[in-house]
């Protein structure tokens, strides 16, 4: 119970950080998603069920705060990512490092494909532009941060 509370409070702090300070990390308009990093972290190290529901709630909150016209899309994407990350709960350390990175990339791609591709499908942007100017830069940028954060957490725990 205390664990659920701890991870929920931490999730809210990540949400506030993403919402209030996320733009500081923007490079040429590409902003990373700290929420997806957090949900992946919870899924991999804590509990699959909690990752699903934490992803759902945090997704719904960020959709409401950012004013997207498709409220619920981040909730959908983050709960799926939470589920996928939870499959590898406690097993991730036994997987070769290259495969670990591929898995992280896969989780991020699932999230950004769902959020970016679907929300921008009716816009004037061509699919190629969405992929090369938004989807891939966001995935690579977030993957870089995710790797850095995970390395720091590993060093910290040792």
């Amino acid at each position: 119970m205390i664990d659920i509370l701890k991870y929920s409070v931490l999730g809210l702090l990540v949400l506030i950080f993403q919402w209030m300070l996320g733009d500081i990390f923007s490079i040429y308009g590409v902003t990373p998603s700290f929420l997806v990093i957090y949900v992946i972290y919870v899924g991999l190290t804590h509990n699959q069920l909690q990752a699903i529901w934490l992803g759902f709630i945090l997704g719904f909150l960020i959709d409401s705060l950012t004013g997207t016209h498709m409220v619920g899309i981040s909730a959908l994407a983050l709960s799926i990512v939470g589920y996928l990350a939870g499959i590898f709960y406690s097993r991730i350390v036994r997987i070769p490092i290259v495969v670990q990175y591929l898995l992280h990339t896969g989780f991020l791609l699932v999230f950004f494909i769902l959020t970016v591709m679907i929300t921008l499908q009716d816009s004037q942007w061509a699919a190629g532009n969405i992929v090369f100017l938004i989807l891939l830069p966001k995935t690579i940028y977030t993957l870089g941060l995710l790797s850095g954060i995970f390395v720091l957490l590993r060093v910290g725990s040792k």
Partner: peptide
């Protein structure tokens, strides 16, 4: 109060 530049909407 806050400004947000997300990939779906600048608000």
């Amino acid at each position: 109060l806050s400004d947000v530049g997300s990939y779906t909407m600048n608000s």
